[in-house]
Amino acid sequence: MHERLLETADRLFYAQGIHAVGIDRVIAESSVAKSTMYVHFRTKEDLVAEYLRRRSDIMRARVTQEVEARAQGPVEERILSVFDVLHKVISEPGFRGCAFANAAAEYPHHAGIQEAIAYDRTWLPALLSGLLGPVRADNDDELVAALVQVYDGANAAAHLDRSATSARTARKTAELLLATRKPATDSNRTAAAEGR
């Protein structure tokens, strides 16, 4: 029942907007009793937060699978695979932009929903930073931040501009950014070797 409610909420909230879909509709289309719904989710906002976490976990799994499939390749190709997954996502029927940007616009002040959005916002920088490895180049933090912004921009352009090529353009931009990576300084190499 829990998963059925989440699947229905995901389909309806993402396609039509969270405020536009009442909880009674989610219950009806899930074919569960109202009492069952409230056993699993105390409020609609609890359901929204869980829907967002579930959507984040699904995207993380898709990206991780693609990155791991290229484990023997160069770091740059593993990082660029993130944009290949994004291209697949925006090419899917029913793509309606970033679920987290959409939710942030609808719920700018709800603590639980903002926490779910923050949960999603941590995984991509952590993944990219981890892929760059323990020996940090001088501009790695800036590079990770730039790559995340390029990813976010491609996601927004795909929806707002109806751009079918935004992730491909973002991938090319990411290649240029990766080419600017500066060699690690001796102090960074020493810190990595000492596990700092």
Rank of each mutant, 00 (worst) to 15 (best):
R11G: 07
T43E: 07
E106Y: 02
T64P: 05
E68A: 10
E142I: 09
L127T: 05
E106S: 02
E92N: 07
K182T: 02
R42N: 11
P74I: 00
A126K: 05
R42W: 08
E29L: 15
D120A: 13
G153S: 08
T64V: 13
I113A: 02
K172Q: 15
V39R: 13
L178A: 01
A184G: 03
M37E: 05
T8E: 00
S35D: 06
L86K: 12
I18W: 12
G195F: 01
I113M: 01
G17A: 07
Q149Y: 10
T165P: 03
R196F: 04
V150H: 04
V135N: 00
N139T: 04
L5W: 01
F83A: 03
S30M: 12
E76T: 14
D84Y: 01
P93N: 13
V32F: 10
R78H: 03
T36G: 05
E45Y: 11
A179T: 07
A118V: 09
S187L: 01
F83K: 03
Q149F: 09
M59K: 14
N155I: 09
A61C: 06
R168D: 14
T180K: 07
Q72Y: 07
A146G: 11
D141E: 13
A116Y: 02
R54T: 12
F95Y: 15
N155H: 14
E115K: 15
E77S: 02
E175R: 01
D57A: 12
G73S: 14
V63D: 00
I23V: 15
R60V: 13
D186P: 03
D138N: 11
A154H: 12
D141A: 11
L86M: 15
Q65E: 15
A104S: 14
S187A: 07
A174V: 04
V39F: 13
A193C: 06
R136I: 02
A118Y: 04
H40S: 10
E3N: 13
P125I: 06
D186F: 00
A184M: 02
